[in-house]
């Protein structure tokens, strides 16, 4: 494909035609913050944190979706851009709990990182804030919608799972919320707890419950592992603290059924030093079940036991 030439922050840059300003900048090692952008989840340009200044354009433009053009002159940290980013961060923080000290995501949170980079200490605006109940009514995912910044990555990720799309945007304006149907909790929905939404959440709105309280993000090392429960070959991460595996989290999906709960539970049983008791939904409530049942191996194990005569 042809390349186009443009200038970013005074630097002459060449980038493939059709690529975005963000792609071109990242390729040059130029930092641009993003919340809603994810190369695997086609863009929506909704968070506006990645805006940059393009010479000749009245308004700032989201770099994640604006294609490069020959002769384009881009500034990624001009005064207008910095003012916009600071203000957007302040606006998000004005409607976001400032409990970083106890937040599970502390140290692995984009909002925190960008606030640090742009020197934003606090929300700066008073007024109404969201006041949603924290959802912990299922054994796998904690949802704190007060921390949600509505980047929508979880919505797009969930929609990629065949037959799921358990969550979507609901309501509108300031009341917009990511929600399962009827604004129910995840525990009341058709969610299968594959955990992919947790993996893409840039802030602390979605957390993996079995690992809650078990360590700070910087104490935990992640080690990829390939699931062998079916031929899809999904990638999971073993989360290690002090040499012990404390939990397994979703990585990247393989072909076919991606990152299923059974696979992750299997990985936990295999690798965790202290695996939590698995739970499955029976009717409307979660119940603790045996590992054999959780992994759908009850019949097989019973047969093995029988054949091997106990």
């Amino acid at each position: 494909m042809d390349n186009v030439n443009l200038t970013i922050n005074g630097r002459q840059v060449s980038a493939p035609a059709g690529s975005t300003i963000l792609d071109a900048a990242v390729a040059q090692g130029i930092f641009i913050p993003t919340f809603c952008h994810d190369p695997n989840l086609p863009g929506v340009a909704s968070c506006r944190i990645c805006v940059v200044e393009v010479k000749g354009q009245k308004n700032l433009t989201p770099s994640c979706m604006t294609a490069v053009r020959e002769g384009m002159v881009v500034e990624t940290e001009s005064p207008a851009v910095v003012e916009a980013r600071k203000t957007i961060l302040e606006l998000i923080l004005a409607n976001h709990p400032q409990d970083c000290l106890t937040c599970e995501k502390n140290g692995d949170c984009r909002l925190q990182d960008y606030a640090f980079i742009y020197g934003v200490k606090e929300g700066g605006f008073t007024g109404e804030r969201h006041n949603y109940a924290i959802e912990e009514d299922n054994p796998y995912i904690i949802r704190d919608m007060n921390k949600c910044i509505l980047c929508g990555k979880c919505v797009r990720t969930c929609a990629q799972v065949e037959g799921r799309a358990v969550i979507d945007y609901a309501f509108r304006g300031f009341r917009t919320k990511v929600a399962p149907p009827m604004n129910n909790t995840l525990g009341d929905s058709d969610c299968v707890y594959c955990g992919r939404c947790v993996a893409v959440c840039p802030v602390g709105a979605l957390l993996y419950k079995p690992m809650a309280g078990k360590g700070r993000t910087w104490e935990i090392a992640r080690e990829p592992v390939t699931c062998s429960f079916c031929e899809s070959g999904c990638q999971f991460y073993l989360n290690k603290k002090g040499g012990r595996v404390i939990g397994v989290s979703a990585g990247s999906p393989g072909l076919g059924r991606p990152l299923c709960l059974k696979g992750r539970l299997g990985m936990e049983l295999l690798y965790c030093d202290d695996p939590v008791t698995p739970q499955l939904k029976k009717g409307d409530v979660f119940q603790e079940v045996s590992w054999a049942e959780a992994l759908g191996l009850k019949g097989v194990i019973d047969k093995i036991k029988k054949l091997e005569g106990e």
């Binding site: 929506v44 340009a45 909704s46 968070c47 506006r48 944190i49 916009a84 203000t87 957007i88 606006l91 998000i92 004005a94 409607n95 605006f125 008073t126 007024g127 109404e128 910044i149 509505l150 945007y169 309501f171 509108r172 304006g173 300031f174 009341r175 917009t176």
Partner: peptide, 21 residues
């Protein structure tokens, strides 16, 4: 405008609310 904001982008969703406040 604040009550008719669709809620998709941050500046309009959060910003118009704060201006109204």
């Amino acid at each position: 405008t604040q009550s008719e904001s669709c809620g998709k982008c941050t500046p309009c969703r959060e910003g118009t609310k704060r201006m109204l406040d």
